[in-house]
Design a protein around this nucleic acid. Structure first.
Lengths: 137, 137
DNA sequence: GTAAACCTTAGAGCGCACTTTAAGTCAAGG
DNA sequence: CCTTGACTTAAAGTGCGCTCTAAGGTTTAC
């Protein structure tokens, strides 16, 4: 699979440290099919190459942006089978992007309301008069 | 506890619908102490008033912005005991706000990278030449 | 009257994403 | 040789935040 003869390789611990992910999680991701074709030494130990680190990076990014494991699995699987799945890959990312945008927007609204509350408390500290009601909607 | 004589009241289902939260979750929140002093009818059924809806709204907001149940509990408990806990309440909100801001920033970075990927796919669809590598860091 | 709809409780179950455990293999250092 | 420590596996366990179930009580509509 690899054409490059002397590519830099990594042990599971090295990947864990470099990519800031636990070795447990790396094995877990491989087991459930998120990381595929991780090479092994003769003794069975995992050998990671740059391409694998690239995947770890990308998977971490998708996870941390809220994509579910099952969606990531779908993405990985169709990426594996060839270039003819570009359309669906794109569609998955676009849908995720929409969720993400909505999510960010929602969080920004929350942030504003929390800010308002903090300011209310700050005002109260200055001048404790009467507690006013909460507004909603 | 209530001075207003004819305040509008709500059943658990009405609250569930109006606030878009399940009746199960309302009971659960009450059980774990997030919703306090919900009144009851003679037959034991819950009666919610505006103030309670205000709390539901606020709790939903905190949850959806990523505050943990246990932090919300702390917030609720100190709010209950009186105005001398304003400082701690404010501190809780400020810390949460910091997390939230960091979180939003992180998500925006993710969004950008996903956008880049989408654009790469789009470019590929136009002109499928050679698959390039993933960049990281 | 009686069936359907809605409420109550305590407690069990679930889905997700890990995280840990147990039991074993292997390689290097002293 | 023996210990140490990093690795392997399958499988069990964990924590969170609900979500559902079971068994029963009450209210409303016909």
């Amino acid at each position: 699979m690899e054409a490059i003869p002397d590519e830099k390789t990594y042990t599971i611990q090295q990947v864990a440290e470099e990519m800031d992910i636990s070795a447990h999680t790396l094995r877990y991701y491989e087991k459930i099919g998120l990381l595929q074709s991780i090479q092994r030494r003769e003794n069975g130990r995992r050998v990671y190459i740059e391409k694998d680190l690239g995947w770890v990076y990308w998977l971490k990014l998708l996870r941390s942006s809220g994509m579910s494991i099952s969606t990531m699995k779908r993405y990985v699987e169709i990426t594996r089978v060839g270039d003819h799945t570009m359309d669906e890959r794109c569609a998955i990312l676009e849908e995720h992007r929409n969720h993400l945008r909505a999510n960010i927007e929602q969080l920004q609204i929350c942030l504003e309301k929390i800010n308002q509350k903090v300011e209310f408390y700050r005002g109260y500290e200055m001048e404790p008069m009467k507690k006013n009601g909460r507004s909603r909607k």
